[in-house]
Design a protein around this nucleic acid. Structure first.
Length: 453
RNA sequence: GGCGGCGUAGCCAAGUGGUUAAGGCGGGGGUCUGCAAAACCCCUAUACAGCGGUUCGACUCCGCUCGCCGCCUCCA
């Protein structure tokens, strides 16, 4: 299979270092607020990638970090007058609630920055020993110019970069240098280190975690496009200088960014759509379909219209699963659809095309069902392939057993009236069900019901 | 100033140097059905921002122009 590598700017044949094991690291969130739609976009994208790799038979060792100490966390905790640890715990819990609701498979491991302090200190110490870092004012900085490969991920020349002055600039040898270890400031949480009390810089945790938990060379490292620079560029620099192993990452993958069209959604405007809000309107399957209908590397414009269109589309898939077939009749062969699906996914996870194959399978199932073929195996296949890209195709049915029994009873009563050609009575029951929010569909193989949209 | 992305039907969105430019949603017509719903069938881009160039041939390669956006500062 082929994967687009940000480093080379091309699709490359993907070959893990160790047989069928994939070492995969995806940058996680800074836990100071609830997740928004952009997070959903990123993590659904990588969930699809991870699931497909597993479907292909790879054992995926998937590590995703939590940045649980940084300025935003400290400020937010201070604003609320609560310990930063409480804030962090709250939003980690929220993160899992949201991601679980989106049917995103849990990573193998979720290390936290503050849980990796010894490893971080070891990385910084080594970088100092090798001359790639220096101490200044209680902090430790990475010496960018000491790494000749700096800029290779972003395809930029160091000298062409616009340098913005920072408050720390005076203490750095070069404005491009970045903090590995930040000296403690009054009233802020800190950890002891050989260079004095302080806390880790932004990029260093990823180096410590990825090399510590996955080794010196990762098969896949992913994240949002906004992280390419400076985060991933810096991470590459410090990691390769630390381990001496090149490349630190064999395949860099970045998902396209969420765009908001006219209604600009931004943190500063405070009009972010949270994952929770999205889930109030649309099902997890629909949100996922909306996201993967567009290629993961392309920008995605947030659109309620498209989201609702996805809801209708996903409903079509669910309905196909209910189509009646004739066991024992000729069997619908779904293998060609599976082949198309895999071929699409093998080409840099082209989910839009894979989804197209699924919709064609849906049509074929419905068509064959009407012709009286046995579609059981094909439905099985649809469900299996849908699951590969993370669709459950389950209806969110919060009805109790009693309610379901009542519905079934009403439906059988109505069918008795239909048998007796008492249309008026039958229609009254249908209206009654509609008022209960239940839609029914008659078919030659019986009457089915579902929650009305 | 540097780096990068995007511009395909009413909307969302794939894709290819050359017979019919995926799929979804929406719309129109039909079949089926007591009706409804669902499903199925047919139709809905002589055309892929614009202008040049390369080529026997480009929407697909190259250049330029216009428009939109991201990154270079915290951000998935």
């Amino acid at each position: 299979m082929k994967i687009f590598n940000t480093l080379s700017g091309q699709k490359e044949e993907f070959i893990p270092q160790q047989d069928n094991e994939v070492k995969m690291y995806v940058c996680g969130v800074t836990v100071y607020d609830v997740c928004h739609f952009g997070h959903a976009l990123c993590y659904v994208s990588f969930d699809v990638i991870r699931r497909y790799l597993e479907y292909k038979g790879y054992k995926v060792n998937y590590v995703q970090n939590f940045t649980d100490i940084d300025d935003k966390i400290i400020n937010r905790a201070n604003e609320r007058g609560i310990p930063w640890q409480d804030l962090v715990e709250k939003y980690i819990a929220e993160y899992f609630t949201d991601m679980d609701a989106l049917n995103i498979k849990r990573a193998t491991l979720y290390p936290r920055a503050t849980g990796e302090i010894p490893g971080i200190i070891e990385v910084v110490r080594t970088l100092l020993d090798k001359g790639h870092a220096y101490q200044s004012g209680g902090s430790v900085y990475f010496r960018v110019k000491s790494f000749p490969g700096y800029g290779k991920l972003t395809h930029q020349n160091v000298d062409d970069m616009r340098v913005t002055a920072t408050t720390e600039a005076e203490k750095k040898e070069d404005p491009l240098d970045f903090a590995l270890w930040k000296a403690v400031k009054p009233g802020e949480p800190s950890w002891p280190s050989p260079w004095g009390d302080g806390r880790p810089g932004w990029h260093i945790e990823c180096t410590a975690m990825s090399t510590g938990h996955l080794g010196n060379s990762l098969d896949i490292h992913g994240g949002g496009q906004d992280l390419i620079f400076p985060h991933h560029e810096n991470e590459t620099a410090q990691s390769e200088c630390y381990t001496g192993v090149v490349p630190f990452v064999r395949t860099w993958m970045h998902n396209g960014f969420l765009q908001l069209g006219a209604d600009k959604m931004s943190k500063s405007l405070g009009n972010l759509v949270t994952v929770k809000q999205a889930l109030e309107r649309n099902s997890a399957d629909a949100i996922r379909l909306f996201i993967i209908s567009s290629y993961y590397r392309m920008p995605l414009r947030y659109s309620l219209e498209a989201l609702d269109a996805a809801e209708v589309g996903i409903d079509r898939m669910r309905t196909a699963l209910k189509a009646g077939g004739k066991p024992g009749a000729a069997v619908l062969d779904a293998e060609p659809f599976k082949a198309r699906f895999s071929e699409a996914m093998d080409d840099d996870f082209n989910a839009p095309q894979a989804v197209a194959a699924l919709f064609d399978l849906v049509r074929e199932i419905n068509r064959s069902s009407e012709k009286g073929l046995d579609v059981g195996k094909a439905q099985q296949m649809l469900k299996e392939l849908a699951a590969v890209i993370g669709f459950t195709l389950e209806e969110t049915n919060r009805l109790s057993v009693e309610e379901e029994m009542e519905i079934e009873t009403l439906i059988s009563q109505r069918n008795e009236h239909r048998q007796a050609r008492e249309w008026k009575l039958a229609d009254e029951i249908r209206d009654q069900l509609a008022k209960m929010g239940i839609a029914i569909e008659d078919s030659p193989t019986g009457t089915i019901w579902k929650i009305a949209r």
